[in-house]
Amino acid sequence: MGRKNWLIMLGAAIFIGVFPWLVMPFKAVSHYVDVMVFAGIFSLVCIGLSLLMGYAGQISLAQAAFFGIGAYTSGILTSKFGVNPWLAMGGGTVVCATVAWVVGVPSLRLKGHYLAMATLGFGVIVNIIFAEEVNWTGGPSGMIDIPYLRMFGRKITSDLAWYYLVWGIVFLVLIFCFHVLHSRVGRALRAIHEDERAAESVGVPTAGFKVRVFMLSAVLASIAGSLYTHYVTCLNPSSFNLMWSIRFVLMVMVGGMQSLWGALVGTVLMTFVGNEWLQVFAELEILAYGAILLVVALFLPGGIVSIGGFRRKRRQSALEGAGT
């Protein structure tokens, strides 16, 4: 992991660390801590998606499904079988990784639109299962009675505790992902992204790498889902539908998919835009949301992090190959 990334990470960590103390004294923005908890949870999903989209060049419209599989696995294990929440979270990742492997092996042979379609179809099917298996998931009216998360024998209920827990996990995951990217795996991924056939011809097992990244992104989404479960303590299929899969892709796009920081920036920004800043538009909110997307996609294809010209060249070259 490069020196520049360490510096950015340090800066980001300090910012995240002091953020609650900056906003809490002011009533008008005190609830920003809650928004940031959700932003942190979504960040986990988006970091995984960014690895898949930006580094491996594959699109997935099924992230909300993995998010949901993690969430429902946690919910069912803890509320119906009394499993320890942390163990259940581990269970969720195992289930997600398995499902991702089963779906990923045939899907990732597909490209571009076809891959988008396959993942989209899978995501919608999973959502229908959430809604239909009423005995297990509570169906569309929701799953309730999910226990709170416990740490050191204490229930985690306060928003501040959640904030630091979630963001602590986000930073651990970031460090892990940067390590992956700077290892042999990362170099292989970049090679796949630049030119898959060339990579294959020099002996990179492209299919295997793509499936592994897909599984990693599913595992991250699953952890996010488990956290969501215990934070909200109620699950509803509509939190994991196609619209959310699209939203996750948008968060990564808006931030800039060629760097993990882009995913982070995009997620935080879009969570605030979607839940906070557009509310002044009331009924017009949906139009404002659409307009923002359009402007970013048209004029800022590299996302927010490309504004400063930061690593522009590499990203530009990578973008041209994106999705092919």
């Binding site: 699109i59 892709v249 796009m253 997307l293 970013v296």
Partner: peptide, 10 residues
């Protein structure tokens, strides 16, 4: 001239 992803988003 945008990438497939950008066009999907647009």
């Amino acid at each position: 001239e945008s990438s497939v992803l950008s066009l999907i988003i647009i």
